[in-house]
Amino acid sequence: MTSPTAQLREQEAAPRGTSSHPVRGINHMAFPTFDPAGTIHFYRDVLGLPVVQTMQVKAWGPEYQRDFVHFFFDIGNADCLAFFYYFGQEPYHDENVPPLLDLGRHVALHVDTVEDLDGFQKRIEDAGLKLDMRVMHETVESIYVRDPNGILIEIARPLRELAAADAVDAEVTAQALLDVVASDGEPTLDALWARKAELIASRVPA
């Protein structure tokens, strides 16, 4: 297959967390909530993540805007998970999200050790909440729980440090994916595997 996209940017491949760009993590990611009491209880009291910033705002701007409270939970590294509670807003829940897409949309928090992970599992279970699952993935071990808003929260601890090989493979895979989705054929995993093999072979000095 002829690559319709750019050459592999191998020179930019760097292990996760070592890139030279100026972004320093997540300032905050925000979700609406219709259950502020449950949300504060879950994050602050069950998980132990303090509320570190709030703002109460009189509606202004577009006519659909409402008075709201915006509150932020500390999730480490100066990052925050934030929620909006809009006064008077009718609750909305999308009941039609396919299960696969529902699982694919989640927030993963990082902890360093298995003891940390065990500690969060205990906090969740001691609160009478059900752990969705505990899974040994490829490079992380994770627990999953639903927050009161239905957001799937993953807490993950690393099983090993990521290395240069991971970053190289990420670049190769991304390029192969770009090529596969740009090709005329149906994008499939088989096509991705084949394209990756071509890219890997092209990187090896003859």
Binding site: H137, A194, K196, A197, I200, A201
Partner: peptide, 17 residues
């Protein structure tokens, strides 16, 4: 384990799974 097994194959050259 299964999670590793099903993500082990990185690429396939001149073959069909």
């Amino acid at each position: 384990r299964h999670s590793v097994w099903y993500s082990a194959l990185a690429a396939v050259g001149h073959g069909r799974v």
